[in-house]
Design a protein around this nucleic acid. Structure first.
Length: 740
DNA sequence: CGTATATATCTTTTT
DNA sequence: GATATATACG
């Protein structure tokens, strides 16, 4: 077969690739690392590679696996592949690590001592359980917060360490050295309630493979080609899992960028990607460095910054096409405080908008969530429409989690966590005393709490009042269970929420957000109606797909954290709060030293490389954090930007910054310094007066953090009745709203 | 058992 | 400054 022949029949998705991309697609045998810098067409390569493998019949669809970190990425890949090769794409194993593990675990749950309908619990439940165990171990919850033990256990799980694998040297001093005991008990308890946490999904899968050779062999034979996205974000567990699965055919292709590794605090090990060539014998590395996204100045600034890192494989982004040019230098601006930063950024955005930019192509990126408030306030007062990515998520809301607990208990009586969560919601008069007695009996009999409750109501253990209430509670559940296979799940859910009194609890609640919660519960019911056949299927979806895929409706600015921005791109990007202590973040540096600085630098690098045409970097001399004012210096990353790619544009004047090209050091002019405590105090007082003073007469237009704009209809002291434009009429304290 | 006040805590958060 | 928990009281 000659080159000409092949070329002649090659489809456009192959011929449109550049030489490196093409090579990455065609190198199908053995281990391959595709080091793909930001904006170098990584997804196209992944999809083209899969399409190539399938269309040249190297393997059947079910012999291929493509594993990602987000459902969004998996979905995009699947859709693009289907567009290329049609319905054959349906049988490829697409999904997140967790999703694929669940698929495997459900088939073999028995081998691990679980039932195949195990529940997947989230952080909230994990903490409850760990806390409970710590109390049983006689540890004071105040002295040893459950979070501490939780994060140690999580890290063990990330490293692929089951309790019996944790070596003595890894046992920390935390919780009086009892963390390993806690870990063991925690795992036992999870098994007894037939539940797994996120870490377990990988950990148990690993155990399954190592203890059952025939199961491992089955999957090793099945997966002839394995594709991994965002390899720099894998943890040890995931790495071991991949190695096992690729053990037979050894065709594993990992795509990633060491310069975009920003999740070490979640257990990701950048070493995995740095070590790739040693881990997989005969591995090949292909670098994608042609950037199709940004201008020369933006790439120059990003490259210059990231070159300060030592722990990296090294690659240099360059503009893919000569037509792009250098564009505008990166704008750097020092401001007085966060208010002025917000004002300046939004002014700049208004300029862009006037010169024809679309708002949807503009993003404001922050390091930490608290920075968002300032921008939101300003955006609202200027009536610029915006959306926040990564805000509070639908399934994490209290009312949704409560509703889910009801459903979990209907599906699985053994779910004690769900039982404890809703036993007294709404208030039934079943408090700690009753719950303890049920829990005690459950422990004694080895029953679930719901089963123990069924028993205890037949005894005189409880006083008549709680006994009867509990009997009603138990009967409710057996009634709902009986309906499980008979009526559509959305109807059952509606029935449970209604009959349990949970919905009524919120309907009667006078709190301003109660109405919204009722709405959310209704939305929950209708989303089940639309999308899901069975209740268990729905429960699994919720635990695995925590994201809310907001449709990008309307022309809006995007506001989000740097972490949330990874993988996205915009024409113009505003990188805010570039101050020492914020980026690099103090807390990160305290915990992890130099390693953290490098990760923070990568975070900054991710931020810059989101932009196609324009980057604005800003920093403020003064910032109010947790209620007190702090003054700070510009981030070291500002100084690390190569001067030929940036343009320092600080307002010359009282509060601006000045820089000397020669020395390259920054200093604040007099007015920017706030060393004097008296001045700080004054500043605070002024702020207080401003917020408490505002008298709001009826008829005025106001703004509320949660409900948006509204009109004051009636005033009763500090309580206002407000007709919101979107959220309806609500009674709100005057201090919660702002006059506009 | 439920409610009202006090106090600690506050980085990021793909699943 | 705002929020979620822990304690004291009714």
């Amino acid at each position: 077969m000659t080159q000409e022949n092949t070329a002649a029949i090659e489809p456009s998705w192959l011929t449109s690739l550049n030489p490196e991309q093409y090579e990455a697609v065609k190198t199908t045998d053995g281990a391959l690392l595709v080091l793909s810098g930001a904006g170098t067409g990584k997804t196209s390569v992944l999809v083209a590679r899969m399409a190539y493998i399938l269309s040249s019949e190297l393997a059947r669809p079910w012999n291929c696996m493509a594993v990602t970190f987000t459902n969004r990425a998996a979905k995009e890949m699947g859709e693009r592949l289907e567009a290329m090769i049609g319905s054959a794409a349906d049988d490829v194993w697409f999904g997140t690590f967790h999703k694929i593990c669940v698929k495997i675990l459900r088939r073999h749950a028995g081998l691990l001592g679980f039932e195949s309908n195990f529940t997947i619990i989230d952080t909230d439940d994990q903490l409850r359980l760990i806390k409970r165990i710590m109390i049983e171990e006689g540890l004071d919850a105040k002295e040893h917060p459950a979070q501490g033990a939780h994060s140690i256990i999580e890290r063990w799980k990330d490293k692929g360490l089951a309790p019996d694998k944790v070596s003595f040297s890894q046992v920390s001093e935390y919780a009086a050295g009892k963390t390993l005991t806690i870990y063991k008990k925690y795992q036992d308890r999870l098994r007894s309630i037939n539940a797994m946490d996120f870490g377990d999904l990988l950990l148990h899968c690993l155990t399954l493979f190592t203890k059952n050779q025939e199961v491992l062999a089955k999957y090793q034979n099945q997966f002839r080609y394995i594709l991994v996205d965002e390899y720099q974000d894998t943890n040890v567990s995931q790495y071991l899992w991949l190695r096992l699965l690729a053990g037979k055919h050894k065709n594993i292709c990992c795509v990633g960028d060491d310069d975009q590794s920003i999740y070490s605090w979640r257990g990701a090990e950048i070493e995995n990607i740095l070590r790739f060539e040693k881990d997989f014998a005969g591995a090949k590395t292909i670098r994608l460095e042609r950037n199709y996204r940004s201008t020369g100045h933006i790439l120059g600034a990003a490259s210059g910054l990231i070159s300060h890192n030592n722990e990296r494989l090294g690659k240099t982004l360059r503009v893919a096409s000569a037509d792009v040019g250098d564009g505008e230098p990166v704008q750097v601006r020092g401001l007085y405080d966060a208010k002025e930063e917000a004002r300046t950024v939004i002014n700049e955005i208004e300029n862009l908008y006037r010169t024809g930019s679309s708002l949807s192509q503009i993003a404001i990126l922050v390091r930490a969530g608290f920075q968002m408030r300032e921008f939101e306030e300003k955006l609202v007062s200027e009536s610029v429409s915006y959306r926040v990515i990564g805000g509070p998520r639908f399934y994490e809301r209290m009312e949704i989690r409560d509703a889910m607990a009801y459903l979990r208990l209907v599906v699985q009586s053994s779910d004690d966590l769900a039982f404890e969560r809703i036993i007294n919601k709404p208030k039934r008069g079943l408090g700690d005393a009753t719950v303890s007695k049920v829990r005690e009996l459950a422990g004694k009999l080895g029953f679930s709490m719901l089963m123990a409750a069924e028993r205890i109501v037949e005894t005189d253990e409880l006083k008549p009042k709680p006994r009867n209430t509990l009997r009603g509670f138990v009967e409710d559940f057996s009634r709902w269970k009986a309906y499980l296979d008979d009526i559509p799940s959305s109807e059952l859910v509606a029935m449970v929420l209604e009959e349990s009194g949970y919905l009524d609890m919120w309907r009667k609640d006078k709190a301003p957000d109660a109405a919204g919660r009722v709405e959310n519960l209704k939305e929950l019911v209708s989303s089940i109606e639309e999308k899901f056949e069975s209740l268990p299927e729905f429960l699994e979806h919720v635990s695995l797909v925590m994201e809310n895929d907001e449709s990008p409706d309307g022309d809006k600015i995007t506001l989000m954290t740097l972490h949330a921005a990874k993988g996205l791109e915009f024409d113009a990007v505003f990188l805010t709060g570039w101050e020492e202590g914020l980026i690099p973040h103090n807390k990160a540096v305290e915990e992890n030293g130099t390693k953290a600085i490098e990760e923070e630098r990568r975070l900054a690098h991710v931020g810059i490389t989101r932009a196609r045409k324009r980057v604005f970097i800003s920093f403020a001399a003064n910032r109010c954090i947790f209620g007190n004012w702090q003054n700070s210096l510009p981030s070291r990353f500002v100084e690390e930007l190569p001067s030929e790619h940036i343009n320092i544009n600080s307002a010359s004047g009282l509060y601006g910054s000045s820089t000397t090209e020669k020395s390259g050091t920054w200093s604040w002019s007099g007015g920017g310094k706030w060393k004097n405590t008296k001045t700080q105090q004054n500043k605070k007082d002024i702020w207080k007066i401003k917020t408490s003073k505002g008298e709001i007469p009826t008829g005025s237009r106001i703004f509320h953090q949660k409900f948006g704009y509204g009109k004051v209809m009636e005033a009763d002291g500090d309580k206002l009745e407000i007709a919101f434009e979107k959220a309806g009429r609500k009674k709100i304290k005057a201090s919660f709203v702002e006059k506009v």
